[in-house]
Design a protein around this nucleic acid. Structure first.
Lengths: 170, 170
DNA sequence: CAAGATACGTCAACATGACTGACGTATCTC
DNA sequence: GAGATACGTCAGTCATGTTGACGTATCTTG
């Protein structure tokens, strides 16, 4: 009962992995882990009267300033009508601003306002706390494993898009 | 382009982890990994005219036969009204059946019918394929790391509930 | 340069799955 | 017997997704 460091579970993958129970274990941890992480910002979002959808847009715009609407649509994998509503609200409430593309003027480039950046930073602070603490309690070797398994879940066709979020385009 | 084994990303967590970029990396992989895994059963669910909510209920009932409504409510963390609709549909369409609790007759015990078990197995097959292949491509050491990080995301107060899914109660 | 493709926006109707609030019944516990 | 508990249900609302149809500005190409 005093073993706070790590609960007595998941002692390690057995040599014969792919066993049903290990797959179910992964499904459950992914489900609970993901929902609990997102829960970390629910309160903050509610304060602002925003939802998850707003956060996702905010997040990717923060991650990749001057993202185009089309790129954001691909990342979120929703319809332009759904995204339209979200962007309109974010713009009306001055969390984001847009500018026409310089190379292609049909494009609309998305960027956070100062107000938007402050909000995103505050939301990120909560996510970072949660995830950092999970990283620390699991240990560094675990973190790379965590990444590799998740990468394996992303279809080949989507990987470039995801990996390109990592500091390119600037 | 022929490097199918693992895309040139996430070469390993740096010694100074907790850096912003590594946290963002985790957030993104978790988001894309989770959504892509759940996408794996969308088609199958659509065939049956069922939604994600139905699957989650089906999954946990499969995982823990004779689960009570109250326990399922805690796992799903939704309101009884929401769950009520889902369970009613599953029962009407004979995917699940219920029986009064033997020790406490106020309780309703949930169990899959044969038809329900077949459906759950089919859905699980798709999830297993996806997740197994991610496990294999990441390697066994990665799988335990994957688990440990996710466990760290689950609040202490919820862990018992999650770990108890692992083959107890039978 | 005209024709067509592309990037984006928008109107309208609808589905899903959550929520709150209120109330009812059977059963258990003290 | 009184109150708590497990479950059900009616009614209304909200957030977020969907399809389908059109409109406009701009880029690309034969």
């Amino acid at each position: 009962m005093t073993d706070v460091s790590r609960p007595a579970a998941s002692p390690g993958a057995s040599p014969l992995f792919l066993r049903e129970d290990e797959v179910r274990r992964g499904i459950e941890l992914l489900y609970f882990g993901y929902t609990r992480l997102t829960n970390a910002i629910d309160q903050e979002l509610a304060k602002q009267g925003l939802g998850r959808a707003h956060h996702r847009a905010l997040y990717f715009i923060a991650r990749q300033p001057d993202l185009t609407v089309g790129e954001l649509l691909k990342l979120l994998a929703i319809t332009k009508q759904s995204l339209g509503r979200v962007l309109k609200e974010l713009q009306d409430r001055q969390f984001i601003l847009t500018s026409p593309g310089m190379v292609d003027r049909r494009q609309k480039l998305l960027r956070l306002t100062e107000k938007g950046a402050l909000l995103e930073a505050e939301l990120f602070r909560h996510l970072r706390e949660k995830l950092s603490s999970a990283y620390v309690s699991a240990g560094q070797e675990s973190v790379t494993g965590f990444w590799h398994v998740l990468e394996g879940l992303i279809p080949e066709s989507d990987r470039k898009m995801v990996f390109d979020l990592r500091g390119d385009k600037a």
